[in-house]
């Protein structure tokens, strides 16, 4: 029961982190072609706050970020197997996601800016920990 509650709250945290990251990028892309109104600035700041809080609680405080960024010699054999499995999934998901994104950007002839690159880098670093948070009950 406790494990189920924990995994549900971690999944909500993962969704909030990725949703706020996506909102931030979409908002930036939209305002780049139009204009930064006070409402959009407020929404941007709100997304940034949600991203910071959900990242800190779901990834940093839970130790998941540290777990997926630990040196191999500090992990035991089960943890190495788990990290390896998660990295393989993360690699596959990230590759497909970036390919689709590049395809869409190429079709719409939209230039890729630095915020998008930074968001993708953060996404790549978060993905293994997010998969762990989503799938592992005992973490």
């Amino acid at each position: 029961m406790e494990a189920q509650k924990s995994i549900t709250s971690r999944r909500i945290g993962v969704i909030l982190t990725f949703a706020s990251l996506a909102a931030l990028v979409i908002l930036f892309e939209y305002c780049k072609s139009t204009q930064w109104t006070p409402l959009f600035i407020a929404l941007g700041i709100l997304s940034l706050i949600v991203l910071g809080i959900s990242f800190a609680l779901t990834f940093v405080k839970s130790g998941l970020w540290g777990f997926t960024h630990k040196a191999l010699k500090k992990l035991d054999e089960r943890e190495i197997a788990l990290t390896s499995k998660n990295l393989r999934y993360a690699y596959a998901i990230f590759s497909i996601f970036v390919l689709l994104l590049l395809f869409i950007f190429a079709l719409t002839e939209t230039p890729i800016d630095m915020l998008m690159v930074a968001a993708l880098l953060l996404f790549a670093h978060l993905l293994p920990a997010a998969i762990l948070a989503w799938t592992e009950k005992g973490m």
Binding site: L75, E77, R78, E79, G138, M139
Partner: peptide, 21 residues
């Protein structure tokens, strides 16, 4: 020489240890 969480996984038979372990 393992993480204490690994003991839980072993006891619940959710993880097969290596021969060395």
């Amino acid at each position: 020489g393992v993480n204490f969480q690994t003991i839980g996984y072993l006891e619940r038979e959710e993880y097969n240890p290596s021969l060395d372990l």
